[in-house]
Design a protein around this nucleic acid. Structure first.
Lengths: 120, 120
DNA sequence: TACGCTCATCGACACCTGTCGATAGATGGC
DNA sequence: GCCATCTATCGACAGGTGTCGATGAGCGTA
């Protein structure tokens, strides 16, 4: 049962999640750590992605179909699909394809890591 | 004792700080709130600015002279000055000019607001 | 006043990214 | 098999931004 699709769309693995992101205020950040943290925050630095996170988190059952994300955001389907992929690659959402539809759930642990990075 | 310089370099006032940034996961974000939050995270989405925050936070006395920020970052003086201004305008740093030098301090309450926005 | 030092601003450039329409791929129903 | 639906990808374009050198504005000192 070889997994055919081994793309980078998969959520980040736990080691990467916990490894990332030292606290900003606690100790001096070296260039590498700063780059990783900045990349993580860059994912959150977009209103469409923030609203997507919010939509998924508040969806019934905690999961949202991509088909229900286009209309409330007022953006084109390719644009919404692009942002969903960015969130998945960042480990903030998981994607599960069921039939013709793609369902997304939030990964609260990933958000918690970024939150902790803002703690002194 | 009129305050001569009433520029936008001043830290954000407390009302703006507390008003901003509803939790992402708690309730659906409208377009305006998402835009504000995204703008706040965009400030953090740069490695130079993150290292500046870290440098200031870990400086002796909690304050850092701009003259001591250029060399460790490996960027030009105008670039560092630009990033410091961005941080001040975002309310994450305060600037105090003493003589020829500019001294910066972190505003932990502002960071706390962003941290809370990431709490479910 | 003249000079040197510190910092901010300006103008320009390269790069990144958010956006869209068009299109391809995949799935289920007829 | 054929078609409709949902999603992902592609190519292109506009706008934003990080970066630098050059320059200007303040301040302290001789």
């Amino acid at each position: 049962m070889a997994v055919v699709k081994a793309r980078s769309e998969e959520p980040m693995d736990v080691r990467e999640i916990t490894a990332c992101c030292d606290p900003v205020l606690a100790a001096p950040l070296d260039e590498a750590a700063a780059g990783e943290l900045a990349a993580a925050f860059r994912v959150l630095a977009d209103p469409v992605r923030l609203r997507l996170l919010s939509l998924v988190a508040n969806a019934p059952g905690g999961e949202l179909c991509a088909c229900d994300a286009v209309e409330p955001l007022g953006r084109s389907q390719p644009t919404v699909s692009h942002h969903l992929s960015v969130l998945v690659e960042a480990g903030l959402l998981t994607r599960e394809k069921r039939g013709r539809w793609a369902w997304f759930r939030v990964v609260p642990e990933r958000l918690a890591v970024l939150r902790d990075a803002l703690s002194g």
